[in-house]
Computed example of a mutant assay.
Amino acid sequence: MAPQERTRRAAAIRDADEARNELSSALDGAGVLLPSLGLDPVSLASGYLPPLVDLGRCNPGTARKLAEALREGRATELTTKVREVNQRSEQRIR
C-alpha cells in the first residue's frame, strides 16, 4: 500500500472510530448500552472495504431499549420541527 493510500486509510479508520464514539455517547444518553459496539475487524483488515462500525449483539431487553430510544428521538424531532414552523407562522401573523 502506497504512503498516500495508508494516510487515507488511517483517516477513514479514525473517522469510523469517532463515529463509533459518537454513537456510544448518544446511546449512553438514551440509557442504552450495546456491549459489543466496536469497529469491524474484517473491514479494518481489508484493503478495499471501508472501515465499518459493528453494532454487535445485545439481549432482547437492550434491543427494546434501543427501539424505544429511537422512537422517542423521532417524536422529539418531529415536535421540535412543528414548534419551529408554528413560531414562524405566528411571527408572520404579527
Rank of each mutant, 00 (worst) to 15 (best):
P35H: 02
G47E: 02
L78V: 10
I93F: 04
L44E: 00
V85N: 00
R64M: 14
T79I: 04
L39T: 04
A16D: 07
R74S: 09
E90I: 05
Q91T: 07
L66F: 11
G56N: 04
L23P: 06
A69S: 08
N86H: 08
S24Y: 10
G61L: 11
A19D: 10
G47M: 00
C58Q: 07
D17M: 09
A30Y: 00
A26S: 14
R6I: 04
V82T: 06
M1A: 15
A30S: 05
S25F: 08
V32F: 02
T79P: 00
R83N: 12
A2C: 10
N86T: 14
R8C: 03
C58K: 00
D17W: 06
Y48D: 01
A69N: 03
D40I: 02
A16K: 07
D28T: 15
R88N: 09
E72D: 14
P41G: 01
E77Y: 08
R14D: 15
S25Q: 13
P60H: 06
L70W: 10
A75C: 03
Q4G: 04
R71Y: 11
L55V: 11
T79Y: 06
R64H: 08
T7G: 02
P3M: 08
G73F: 03
A67G: 03
V42G: 02
V53C: 12
K65W: 10
R83H: 11
Q91N: 05
R14W: 06
L52S: 12
R83C: 05
E72W: 12
N21I: 15
L37H: 09
C58I: 07
A11K: 15
D17R: 14
R8P: 01
R83F: 06
R20E: 03
E68Q: 14
K65S: 12
P41Y: 05
M1F: 08
A2W: 06
L44V: 01
E68A: 12
L52N: 08
C58F: 15
V85E: 02
S46K: 01
P51Y: 01
P50K: 09
E68V: 12
V82H: 03
